[in-house]
Nucleic acid binder design. Structure first.
Length: 479
RNA sequence: CGGGGUGUAGCGCAGUCGGCUAGCGCGCUGCGUUUGGGACGCAGAAGUCGGCGGUUCGAGUCCGCCCACCCCGACCA
């Protein structure tokens, strides 16, 4: 059916992506342009992301709480850079209860201001510190152009907000959470992100320093997949977050914030997806295994269904997420393609032949076509399935890492730089920091500074200015 | 807000030198045959042709205005 084929990744990546998310029923366009409607399958991916992140937050001493959606407009103006950064993209509520409000409310674009206000009330003493709170929430940023999952007007995320007694401790927290994100992305999503610091130009409005994890999508464009900000005392001063230290001296707190959003679903899709559709990493897939029963006659159906159900229970018992596709009226071939498009990592087929032979047919999604299909003895499935899932998880990470590394090029001249970011991928360069040159590069090539490469040893020559520098950076076109 | 494009059934589109009952593919409903890689037959349901106004015996088709959406820029998790 020609009409049902996806556009290919190479032909039109954007179209491929849009069709993919819509056909896999991950999200729908809302009546309000750019607002999120996530269908159950897509939301299940998000829930798995939430679970994996939440566990890591708790392991690092954080707790969850909830803060208001509506923020008095005046809160947003308290931190100078913050207001400049966010003013253009605020949704403003002017009426409530049928009356015009005395002060307009903005729908939170991020919660530093609300949470800062509460922290000012909660924190009195060094004994109250650190405060390590995370919130799962939706936020609204009135972007001019939207793209499903990557840049929606409304999006879901988690935002962590912490307050500390010392600068060193806050910086440590900022870096810790960056590493938590990197660990999560690599281990759970098999997305080989590169952590590093953002430039002055690209940093968060109101932050002293911003760090990000950067991911390379299947078209080699870069995507900021998570951020961690060291806010210094900027917000503490704007919101009066103070404490008495051990010496009875009144001091401003040092704060951080960090977030990962539903954009990460997009990052996962665009990292692993192929021309057949989604390819989901087993750790995040809503269903890790789909079971497809195959039968012709009613007599076959009974015994096949019985075997399949037993298998499903056996898998659920060892905590494998399964889906039994017992739809009548569609052929097995249709089901195969359907679940491939939805990216289920492993498919098990059981038919009369398998019952006769004591086997199951296993097909792995990460190996395209029928090459990924193998027959195994049914008896060993409780060992074979987890092993295969782990194998797929590893193999996705390996493949994505290889892809990324083969599309990063170290360049020394602007000519080479332009060629790389235009046609090949990311440029890795020695970089002497200069906002004006950064802006010039963006104007010339549309490439932005993704982040600085951490732990660079020694000294080099800036590819653009020829000046000596100790920094290296990635430049790439981004989403 | 600038530049380009598109609006016709749930989705993708054809029809556009005016012409009578507006079409195709997919999907959807019913029945039957099928079912180990996107099944087939028959019978159906579904449309203010983006909106408003104009020209005309007659407008999806021509003219004017408006609206919406998409792509490329400025903005961005």
């Amino acid at each position: 059916m020609e009409e049902n084929k996806l556009p290919t990744r190479s032909e039109n990546y954007n179209e491929w992506y849009n069709q993919l998310v819509l056909r896999a029923e991950l999200a729908d366009y809302a009546p309000v342009r750019g607002c999120m409607v996530v269908r159950p399958y897509g939301w299940a991916i998000w829930e798995n992301i939430q679970k994996a992140l939440d566990q890591r937050f708790k392991d690092t001493g954080h707790v969850n709480a909830a803060f208001p959606l509506l923020i008095p407009q005046s809160f947003m103006t308290k931190e100078k850079e913050h207001v400049e950064g966010f003013a253009p993209e605020l949704a403003v509520v002017t009426h409530g209860g049928g009356q015009e409000l005395e002060e307009p409310l903005v729908v939170r674009p991020t919660s530093e201001t609300v949470i800062g206000t509460m922290y000012a009330k909660w924190i009195q003493s060094y004994r109250d510190l650190p405060v390590l709170i995370n919130q799962w929430a939706n936020v609204v940023r009135w972007e001019m152009r939207t793209k499903l999952f990557l840049r929606t007007l409304e999006f879901y995320w988690q935002e962590g907000h912490t307050a500390h007694a010392s600068e060193a401790e806050a910086i440590e927290e900022t870096e810790r959470m960056l590493n938590v994100y990197a660990d999560f992305a690599i281990k759970e999503a098999a997305v080989p992100v590169l952590p590093g610091q953002k430039s002055e130009v690209e940093k968060f409005a109101g932050a002293v320093a911003t760090y990000s994890i950067e991911a390379m999508m299947g078209d080699t464009k870069a995507l900021q997949a998570g951020t961690s900000h060291f806010l210094g005392q900027n917000f503490a001063k704007a919101f009066d977050i103070k404490f008495l230290d051990e010496n009875n001296t009144l001091q401003y707190c040092w704060t951080t914030s960090w977030g990962v959003s539903t954009r990460f679903i997009g990052a996962t899709i665009m990292t692993h997806g192929d021309d057949q559709g989604l390819v989901l990493p087993p750790n995040l897939a809503p269903y890790q295994v789909v079971l497809v029963p195959i039968y012709r006659k009613d007599s076959e159906k009974t015994s096949v269904m019985e075997a399949v159900s037993r298998l499903q229970q056996g898998l659920e018992a060892i905590h494998v997420r399964t889906k039994l596709d017992d739809r009548d009226g569609v052929t097995p071939g249709f089901k195969f393609n359907d679940w491939e498009m939805r990216g289920v990592p492993l498919r098990i087929e059981i038919g009369p032949k398998d019952l006769a032979n004591g086997t199951i047919a296993l097909a792995r999604r990460d190996i395209p076509g029928r090459k990924g299909k193998q027959f195994l003895p049914m008896a060993g499935y409780q060992e074979a399935v987890p092993e295969l899932l782990a194998n797929i998880q590893d193999s996705l990470l390996r493949k994505a890492t290889q892809f990324r590394d083969s599309h990063i090029f170290e360049v020394e001249t602007y000519e080479d730089f332009k060629e790389v970011v235009e046609t090949k991928g990311w440029a890795k360069v020695w970089w002497y920091d200069d906002p004006e040159n950064e802006a010039k590069i963006k104007a010339d090539t549309k490439a932005t500074l993704r982040n600085y490469i951490p732990d660079v040893q020694g000294e080099g020559t800036c590819f653009l200015t020829g000046r000596k520098t100790r920094k290296m950076a990635y430049f790439a076109k981004g989403y």
